[in-house]
Every structure is written in C-alpha cells, then in structure tokens.
C-alpha cells in the first residue's frame, strides 16, 4: 500500500522559492492500478521522485506498506519516461535487466529464469543480446518494463512511460501494462498527462491541479476489468468518464490562471 499524506515540496534557488507541490494526500491500495493525471507542468515528475525516494519532500510523508520512505524503498521499481536515458547503453538488453537482480543477490539460475520470463512477457523474446540503441523507442520502453517486472516489485511507479512513443505503439503498451498488472497482482501508480490513457488504464484516476499542486478530484473508473482498445474506448461510460476528467483538468487550469 502506498500512502501519501500532506506532501509538500518547495524548491529553493537562491532567495527564490518555488512551490511545486502544495498539499497532496491520496492512497493506493495493494493491487490497485491508479492513474495520476494533471495538466502539463503540474509537478508530476517531482511527485514521482518523492514517491520513489529519490527526492526528499519539504513536508508530509510517503509510506510504502507502512514504512516511511527516506530512500528508494525495497520492492519498488520505477519506469521512467526517458527510456533512452534510463536504459544503460553500454549493456545489452540481458545485462540491463540482470544488473538490478545481481544487486538484489538473486541466485544465477533464478536470474536467468526471471530475465527470460520478463522478456517473454513484454514480447521481446530473443532480443536479449541486442543493445538498447539497436531497438525502436517502443521496444526500448518494453525493455525498461521487462527490467521492472523481473525485479519482482510489489509497487511499480510509471512516469509518463509512453509519452515519447507513437500512438499505435502506445496502445499496444497500454494493453501490455493492463495485462501485466492483472497477471502479477502488482500495485501500479501510473503518471500521465493523457486523459484517455488514464481512464483506459486505471481503476481509479487521481486528478491533480496546476502547480502548486493539490489533489483536484478523484474518480472511480467503473469500467469492466476486461478492456480493449476498440470497445472500451467506444463505451458510452468511457466517454462520460473521460469527459469528467477533462472538465476537472480544465477547471484546474482555469483556477491556475485566476
């Protein structure tokens, strides 16, 4: 379970203070898939880095399974937006997936299993020897997902992972995330600026305001668990929900302008 309570982050640069996050409180239950969506520049990345234990918040706290986060928590994996910078170009796909496992002291045979299973799961069977830069953008992000899956996390953070891939690849990767989530029973927090994506993927959508950020609204996505790109996106319920989210985001932007 991921609990965020009263989270605030102020950046100090010289005598100037920039308040990125004002007051954020929300919870992600074990096994949930929650999407965070907000207008661009709403401090999503700051929030994610606080959750991942990469950045110390100014106030408030983040708890993973009841334990306060003061560094990267055990059992958490992160998929970054910039797959091109997050995968290590000096290692081939296998070594990229394997390095975190070695650090976790997973025995060799188990590592081989995990690498194979995770690459199969993301549809990259047989690409273990390739280097990341030999692959397309969508395939690189699949490698990053495979690395996260092989790590066997209880919590998976995804920071706008599909912002830089083309629309068709994106749809495939969205389905991949849903499928992995259902199969692995992992808790996923998915950050995005894409409203449709948040509704399509999430069980719940948390809407953020513009910076300085607060939680604008929360919405339960009561769509059936089996979703697919064609029928779900044409479902009147889907359209009603995306309209709700869209209105809230627009309201958030307007509030910011005032």
């Amino acid at each position: 379970m991921l609990e965020v309570k009263g989270l605030r982050k102020v950046y100090q640069s010289g005598s100037r203070e920039v308040e990125a996050l004002r007051d954020l409180t929300f919870t992600v239950e074990n096994g949930d898939l929650v999407c965070l969506v907000g207008p661009s520049g709403c401090g999503k990345t700051t929030l994610l880095r606080c959750l991942a234990g990469l950045l110390a918040p100014t106030a408030g706290d983040v708890r993973v399974d009841g334990k306060a986060v003061d560094g990267p928590p055990e059992g958490m994996a992160v998929v970054f937006q910039e797959y091109g910078r997050s995968l290590f170009p000096w290692m081939n796909v296998r070594d990229n997936v394997e390095l975190p496992l070695k650090q976790k002291k997973v025995p060799k045979r188990r590592r081989q299993e995990l690498i194979e299973q995770s690459l199969d799961a993301v549809g990259l069977t047989g690409s273990a020897a390739a280097y990341p830069w030999q692959l397309s953008g969508g395939m690189q992000q699949r490698v990053a997902i495979a690395r996260a899956v092989a790590y066997e996390p209880r919590t998976l953070l995804m920071d706008e992972p599909f912002a830089a891939v083309d629309a068709q690849t994106r749809a495939d990767l969205e389905d991949l995330v849903r499928e992995l989530w259902k199969r692995l029973g992992v808790t996923i927090l998915f950050v995005t600026h894409d409203i449709d994506e948040s509704v399509y993927l999430g069980q719940r959508v948390v809407m953020l305001s513009s910076s300085p950020t607060v939680v604008q609204d929360e919405l339960l996505i009561d769509l059936p668990a089996d979703r697919d790109q064609l029928t779900t996106r044409a479902d009147p319920r889907f359209i009603a929900l995306r309209t709700r989210v869209y209105e809230q985001i627009q309201a958030a932007k307007k509030n910011a302008e005032r």
Partner: peptide
C-alpha cells in the same frame, strides 16, 4: 546523465 543515476539508485545499484 541524471536519469541514469536515478535509475541506478531506484534499482538499488
């Protein structure tokens, strides 16, 4: 790269 370092940190490297 800062993303490289973030990645390493979050995976316990």
């Amino acid at each position: 790269d800062s993303v490289v370092l973030d990645t390493a940190r979050s995976y316990g490297v």
